[in-house]
Write a protein that binds this DNA or RNA. Structure first.
Length: 130
DNA sequence: GGTTGAATGGCCA
DNA sequence: TGGCCATTCAACC
């Protein structure tokens, strides 16, 4: 599906400014993810809706995110509030990794509320994308 | 209510 | 060209 990404009116994350790598679609996903403010969260479905694509492609792009902690991909959860997949770890260039548990802890630290079970996020997903 | 299967979109080897 | 996924929805126990 062809996207009109010739010139995204989106704030370009610093990592992307210095590294113009990635496909236009991936960059679009990363830009949208970067717009999610701390203490908020969004879903794959919402990102997909804005990009006129499918959640599967969004997850694919986030998985290919070369700037794991810089781009707040941890603020993107699955529909329903589930944290979704994280493949257990996010591979970092240093070999470090962020586990699903740390992802949840990070979100909670930013102010995101979780349910009693701690498996789902509470509140309204951020959808104020440009 | 929880689990399984199929559909879908884009990227890499 | 074929296969791989950080999803989602619907149907079936």
């Amino acid at each position: 599906m062809s996207l009109t990404l010739t010139k995204l009116p989106l704030p370009l994350p610093p990592p992307l400014q210095t590294s113009p790598r990635g496909t236009p679609f991936e960059r679009a996903v990363w830009c949208l993810t970067y717009q999610i403010p701390a203490g908020s969260f969004s879903t794959y479905a919402l990102l997909a809706a804005h990009l006129r694509s499918s959640p599967r492609a969004v997850g694919n792009a986030l998985r290919r995110n070369p700037f794991a902690p810089e781009i707040p991909c941890h603020r993107v959860v699955a529909t329903g509030g589930s944290l979704g997949g994280f493949k257990g770890k996010i591979a970092r260039r240093d070999g470090e990794g962020i586990t699903l548990v740390e992802k949840r802890a990070l979100l909670r630290k930013e102010g995101v509320k979780f349910d009693a079970a701690g498996a789902k996020v509470l509140g309204t997903p951020f959808r104020g994308f440009l």
